[in-house]
Amino acid sequence: MPESARIRMRHELGLDQPVHMQYLSYIFGLFTGNYGTSWWAHENVWNMIVIYFPATFELVVAAMFFAIVVGFITGVLAAVRRDTVSDHALRGLTLFGISLPIFWIALMLQLIIAVELGWLPVAGNTDPLFTPHRITGFMVLDSILGLNYMALIDSLKHLIMPAIALGLYIMAYVSRLTRANLVEALSQDYIVTARAKGLPQRMIIYKHALKNAIIPVITVTIYQFAWLMGGSVVTEVIFSWPGIGWLYFQAILIRDFPIIQGVCGFVAIWLGVLLFLMDLLTYHFDPRIRTGW
């Protein structure tokens, strides 16, 4: 490339500034939403992130919902029925869940359910025929807001497989963790007191044991949320889901550093939010922390 063009590019990218200035302006840019311009798309990176973000958020929330609800329920069941057939079966299944590589399970789901059986769509988050009017960018939400029944069904159909593929690992993890913590809680002395008081079994499990067991589960779940962001890259690539992960992948392939930096910075901010959320939830659930015990 001609020398003059190179000089101009260096100036545009701010590379002719001293390193610490570059770093500072980068951090500053992160917080003010100025991530620069994509080399490839010639679009403002922040705008791009905003456009692609809702799809990822929708996927991650759906996956998390699936993971927490199913994981929690199976974990409680396994703990309450400790050492019975159902307990062992669930533990075996969850072992599979945490060992199955996410790209493999996503691919298998795609293969079996979409390609072979044709029950669900293969890829994408919407069918052009049924795309709802874009209000928030969340397909499901937009369908509801637009009172568009067909779009709702369509977007849910597209959401199921990616959400399960993404959430499976976390579901298995939550299930095992819940089981372990509940079993531990049920072996504590205060449970003996509760039994001596003649409290019904259900009350003992939900009011006494679970409230204790849930504390570490919450902390870990928030950590897993961070893992989900990474997992969504793979899921979005496989299902051609138009989210941040997919965007990041494309950027990596063509070495578009503004986007790469932008997404990384964005993820970092999200992590900060998550950590804060985790502190908040732990504070709510564990009174011992409140009084500095």
Binding site: Q188, D189, Y190, V192, T193, A194, K207, H208, K211, N212, I215, F285, D286, P287, R288
Partner: peptide, 10 residues
Amino acid sequence: DSMNAFNPVL
């Protein structure tokens, strides 16, 4: 040991 006999989160 009353500390363990009571449920710490209630």
